[in-house]
Design a protein around this nucleic acid. Sequence first.
DNA 1: ACCTGAACACCGTTCAAGT
DNA 2: ACCTGAACACCGTTCAAGT
Lengths: 221, 221
Amino acid sequence: MGSNPGEGPTTRVPLTRERLLSGAIAVADAGGLGALTIRSLAEELGVKPMTLYHHVANKEEILDGMIDAVFGEIALPPPDAGWRSAIRERALSARQVLRRHPWAIALMDSRRSPGPATLRHHEAVIATLRRGGFPIEVVGHAYSLLDSYTYGFAVQEAALPMDADDAPLMVEVFLEQLDPDTYPNLADLAMEFASGSAGEDVDEFEVGLDLVLDSLERLLA
Amino acid sequence: MGSNPGEGPTTRVPLTRERLLSGAIAVADAGGLGALTIRSLAEELGVKPMTLYHHVANKEEILDGMIDAVFGEIALPPPDAGWRSAIRERALSARQVLRRHPWAIALMDSRRSPGPATLRHHEAVIATLRRGGFPIEVVGHAYSLLDSYTYGFAVQEAALPMDADDAPLMVEVFLEQLDPDTYPNLADLAMEFASGSAGEDVDEFEVGLDLVLDSLERLLA
DNA sequence: ACCTGAACACCGTTCAAGT
DNA sequence: ACCTGAACACCGTTCAAGT
């Protein structure tokens, strides 16, 4: 005990706040937020549960850190592009990141203290919009619309099966359980999805995003 | 013990699934999802924890039931109105309901089996859009955009302080902690909110909603 | 039929120690 | 400085009983 038998010096790597957070994200990615406990995280990190409390005050602080790390993964709007393509790229990145970490959405509405990566991100987006010509009074409306759409899309996407490959199968199962007499329109829409998704080349997120961007562009004129 | 001393026959009311669910919603409304445990719910209902398992299989089933009850609270689009005002009213209702039950958003992305109220609701919205002239291929895009915006707005609203009255104070506290040299644009936007919110008469949700509805209207033409 | 007490395997967290 | 064992007050859930 304590003599580290048969293991390389890799286990000597001291625990840091950063390693703790990326471990927590890995656990949540793999098994959802419910799988993330102090005990499971300690196991993942090869350490005893109580050790974690030397790097964070409590579990809340871990959740705050995870959210800030997720924001850090979202690509900042490229500063050299026009506002529309810069904002578009940033929204696509946000959507990909939220798809990778679906647990983050449920966390977002309970976290109240934004971390440095979150602030840096907001700063960059606001700067992009202003550079694009949006007056400060309009920037708030534009950002609210953009992020509401992005987060809301992620919420709905997280409620569906992970892989897009499974989608046709899911729709079929759904259709079988659905009574087309009580829900005729719902059944029609599901059928449309089932038949259309074969040759589906457009991403649903981009369809709505481009409508939102159109709205913003019209706000500028 | 067991002789029900000094209490009226009100305690005789038998527990039903419905009473169980509205009790669960009351507990979550008051203290958040974290306050809802089998034990706290039993206490709220004046019953012992194990009694609940005679009406639901497990806690998951309670959460599913709560979500369906929340959907049931959202007003269906009035059938006699034009599609735009009908959809607008329904979106406003959804937003109010989600504001009343902020915990519902975090639940939505994990629930996978829609209840009857949820299905009935979707059916009515889809019917309204089709009656308004949207081709079936477009209804999916329209509904996705509408609900993404609505849910996402609710997510962001839930991350803020409950009362709109506290908002100016919050912004001020936020501004004090924010370094205006590293986050100049963020600071500007916060200042704009602080000064503008005094004479603020428009609801931010409606600003974005009307832009979304404009987009949909243009899709029809 | 409807309710329950006691018990099980879990949680997050504290405290007093170990190196 | 960094880590930990044992304990505390909680969780959801099972099981075998009580009326």
